[in-house]
Computed example of a mutant assay.
Amino acid sequence: MNDAPISYKRHRFPAEIIAHAVWLYYRFPLSLRLVEEMLLERGIVVSYETIRRWGKKFGPEYVRRLRSKRPSPNDVWHLDEVLITIAGKKHWLWRAVDQDGYVLDEIVQNRRNTKAAKRLLTRLLKKQGLAPKRIITDKLRSYGAAKRQVMPDVEHRAHKGLNNRAENSHVPLRKRERTRQGFRSPGSLQRFVSIFSAFRNLFVPVRSKRSAFQIHIHRLNAMAEWKAVTRALA
């Protein structure tokens, strides 16, 4: 995690309020107007447009400072793509999650073919630094063709029934898509998911941590990291 504090200079509101507003918007299925209303209930008068600008400016800064999960040669990558319609045009959000449901990467593309699958695998390999034990996909042939070009020695299982982990990872985004009433551009979708998924990676426990006590401890640790990441310059 990068220890350099974030500068909130020339902002009228203190760091705690800005960070709290960004956290509310990306962590929960709330519209900007609902976040505005929740802050108003606490006596904080700020417009939803200001909250949107805070998210756009500080969201990526927060994400850059959050710790990433260490890659392992025993990881299993689950890959899937989901259709997102933007301004009447079809786009595909390609996503990779690991065996614990941790989102590894996402990329918005306007094609659902081998070139698009290859771009996802290439980005993943560069970002993770090492290949996984295996990849699991649905029966889209583009994955197999791309895998043979990028990581030919990695085991590949193509079976729709084995890929529920990747398919289930789309559900939270679908809820946010409805809350936002869609996305305005591929760029806005890419920016949103990069922040949204990083927040979920931090606050949502991995599948192995399911007892009430483990979830409680996980959330306490997540909040401690969040406060450390969003602190202001002294």
Rank of each mutant, 00 (worst) to 15 (best):
W226N: 00
D3I: 09
F196K: 01
L34K: 13
K126T: 13
A146N: 07
L173V: 03
Q128P: 08
F213I: 14
V103M: 04
N168H: 12
G161N: 10
I135P: 05
G59Y: 08
A131Q: 14
F28Y: 15
T137L: 10
S142G: 15
K126A: 12
A21T: 05
G129P: 09
L125Q: 10
L130P: 05
G144E: 15
R64G: 11
F58A: 00
L233H: 04
I18L: 10
V103S: 10
H11L: 15
F199Q: 03
S31M: 02
L125E: 05
A222D: 10
G55C: 11
E16F: 07
E16T: 14
H170T: 01
G55T: 05
S169Q: 04
I217G: 01
R141W: 02
K90M: 03
L202D: 04
V150G: 00
S185W: 05
K175V: 09
R191H: 13
T85Q: 15
A198W: 07
L220P: 01
D75L: 04
S211F: 06
N164F: 06
H218G: 07
R141I: 12
G182A: 09
K126M: 10
R53A: 13
Q181Y: 12
P132W: 05
P14L: 12
M223D: 05
E81P: 10
V63E: 13
E155L: 15
V150S: 02
K160D: 10
V82Q: 07
R176V: 03
K139G: 13
K126V: 14
I217V: 14
L79R: 01
I51H: 08
R165S: 11
L121E: 07
R12Y: 02
H20W: 14
G101D: 03
K126D: 11
L24T: 04
R174W: 07
Q214M: 12
K56T: 09
A131S: 12
M151T: 11
V97C: 08
L220H: 05
L34H: 09
Y48T: 00
S197V: 03
S211A: 07
S72Q: 05
D80R: 06
A234D: 13
L125T: 12
